[in-house]
């Protein structure tokens, strides 16, 4: 009996080493997986961020059609960098709304005239409260919202060229 006990440390180590080996064989995955997938959007009503466009409410996402929700700020450099990709998405037929974080109307207007305007509506989230309720950790971030107002996908960071087909596929899948 006692002799058998002496094998316990080796057995425990073999189990741990097996776990390590398995982990090493995996592709490293550094993605933060969103806990928001499948959650309904929080209820919000945002005033227009620019006078020329409507503001944004939760109800606007319950139209039966999936939409993109882009969280951005005119003060944010990666937001300007992703503008061409947003334009590409808009040309491919995506409906895009936005929330402007900690911004002022004139600065948003200047941003839109500099980098293009793919948005149907832009809500003004001056103190980040809707951004926090959404669970978005920074700008830019882009959500795919299905026709019932539920979050189907969260893209953290700027949209790069290779992300465009992924987002289009997610939009299609959210239908």
């Amino acid at each position: 009996m006692k002799r058998r006990l002496f094998w316990v440390p080796l057995a425990a180590f073999v189990a741990v080493a097996g776990l390590f080996a398995w982990m090493l064989s995996q592709e490293p995955d550094r993605q933060v997986r969103s806990r928001l997938i499948g959650q309904p959007l929080p209820a919000f009503t945002l005033a227009p961020a620019v006078p020329t466009k409507p503001g944004l409410t939760t109800a606007a996402f319950r139209t039966g059609q999936p939409r993109l929700l882009n969280v951005f700020g005119s003060w944010c450099v990666p937001c300007a960098a992703e503008a061409p990709q947003l334009a590409k998405l808009a040309r491919a037929g995506a409906k895009i709304d936005a929330i402007a974080i900690r911004d002022t109307p004139d600065k948003v207007a200047a941003f839109l005239s500099d980098y293009g305007d793919p948005y149907a509506a832009i809500g003004d989230d001056r103190n980040s409260s809707v951004q926090l309720a959404l669970g978005s950790s920074g700008v830019p971030e882009t959500f795919v919202i299905d026709g019932q107002g539920r979050i189907a996908h969260q893209h953290i960071g700027a949209i790069r060229d290779e992300d465009v087909p992924i987002l289009l596929a997610r939009l299609k899948a959210a239908r």
């Binding site: 006692k2 002799r3 002496f6 094998w7 440390p9 080796l10 180590f13 073999v14 080493a17």
Partner: peptide, 14 residues
């Protein structure tokens, strides 16, 4: 090293 030492332990310590 660890596996070797623990195996040696299991065989020898008795």
């Amino acid at each position: 090293y660890i596996g070797g030492a623990l195996a040696l332990f299991a065989f020898r310590v008795g």
